[in-house]
Amino acid sequence: MKAIVCTGYGPPEVLQMQDVEKPRPADNEVLVKVHATTVSMGDHRIRSFTVPSAVWLPARMALGLTRPRRNILGIELAGEVEAVGGQVQRFKKGDRVFAATLQGFGAYAQYRCISEDGPVAAKPRNLTYEEAAAVPIGARTALHYLRKANVQSGQDVLIYGASGSVGTYAVQMAKHFGANVTAVCSTANVELTQSLGADAVIDYTADDFTTRPDRYDVVFDTVGKASFGDCMKVLKSGGSYLNCTPVLPSIQVMRAKLSGAHKLILGEAPPETAEALDFIRELLEAGKIRVVVDRKYRFDEIVEAHRYVDQGRKKGNVVISIV
C-alpha cells in the first residue's frame, strides 16, 4: 500500500510517499480503508519536532532520537471497514467509520488497523469522509475539556484560539451546553467565530482581553498562546482554566494549584474510547455543531498541506483526501 513516511525531523519535505506492507487485523481489530485524514497541529509538532527546550530530550526519547519511531504520521481518519478480526463484534465489512489514531499514529496510509475497543465509531451519516476525518481529535478534545470543567447553562466561557480545530468545536459545544461564549481570534477569523455562535468576539490584534472588565467561569486556551498570568486575571474565583497543550511547570502554575482557588486542567488527553465520538456524531447528525474545513489536498499534495499548516493560520481543519 501507499503511505506517507516521515523520514526524519524537519521541514515538510521529510514526508515521502513510499510503498509499505499492508497491515492485517488482529482478532480484536478492524482494517480500515482510509478515505481521508488531516494535517493537524499534532502532526506539525511531531514532524518539525516543535517542543519546548526543557522537554527536548524526554520528547526525543519518547518519539525517536533521529526520526519518529512511528514514522507514518496522521492522528485522525475516516474510511470504510475492509476486514475484521475473528473476535470483532461492533463492526462488519463495509461499515463507514471515523477514528482517532493518536496512539500509534498511522493515518497517512491507505489502510490502518484499529482496535474495536478504541476511539472508532460509525461515521456521521450527513458528513463526507473528508468532513468526518476532521472530527475525531479536535471535537473529542474540546468535549473532554468542557466536560472536565462541567460547563453549564448561564456560565461565561472565554475561548482563546477560537478559529482552530479545537477552538471551532469548543465554541459550538460550549453554546450547546448553554454557556455565554466569548471567542478570541484574529481579525481574519472574526466572521467565522461569529457564525459558530459566539456571543462576543475579541480580535486580539486590536484588543487585549485582559483589559476588559469581564470575568469568566471558564477560560479555555486551545492553542497554548495566551499567558497563564493573563488568563488568571480574567478568571472568576473558583473558575476553571483549561489548556489542551503541554504546560511547563512554573511558579505561577504551582501557586495556583496550591491555592485551590481555581480548577486547572492542563495537557490531558481524552480517553481512548468511542463514547465521545458517538456523542459527537449525534450532535453532528442533529445539526447542533458543524465541521470547519479550511482547505483540502490530495494525498500526493501532503507536503504542500504541511507547508500551509506550518504557517499557523489554518481555520478549523486541513483535510487530505486519500481515495
Rank of each mutant, 00 (worst) to 15 (best):
I4T: 12
E13L: 01
Q16F: 01
Q16A: 11
E21W: 00
K22G: 02
P23L: 04
P25R: 07
D27V: 13
E29V: 09
K33G: 10
T37I: 08
V39M: 07
D43T: 08
R45G: 00
S48I: 00
T50I: 03
S53T: 04
P58R: 07
P58C: 02
L63D: 03
R69G: 13
G74V: 06
L77T: 12
A78I: 12
E80H: 03
F91H: 12
K93A: 14
D95M: 08
D95E: 13
L102A: 13
G104E: 06
G104K: 13
F105D: 08
G106D: 10
Q110C: 02
E116V: 03
P119S: 14
V120F: 09
V120A: 12
A134S: 15
A139C: 10
L143D: 07
L143I: 06
L146E: 10
L146Y: 04
V151G: 08
I159G: 10
I159E: 04
S163D: 09
S165M: 10
G167D: 11
T168A: 07
H176Q: 14
V181P: 06
V181Y: 11
T182L: 03
N189P: 01
E191W: 01
L192P: 02
V201I: 13
T205R: 14
T205A: 11
T210G: 03
F220C: 09
G224R: 05
C231K: 03
G238T: 06
G239H: 03
L248Q: 12
I251A: 14
V253S: 04
A256R: 00
S259H: 01
I265E: 13
L266M: 15
G267Q: 04
E268P: 05
A269W: 08
D278H: 14
E282M: 04
L284C: 12
E285G: 05
R298P: 00
R298G: 13
R298S: 12
F299S: 06
D310L: 09
D310G: 03
R313T: 05
I320D: 00
I322G: 07
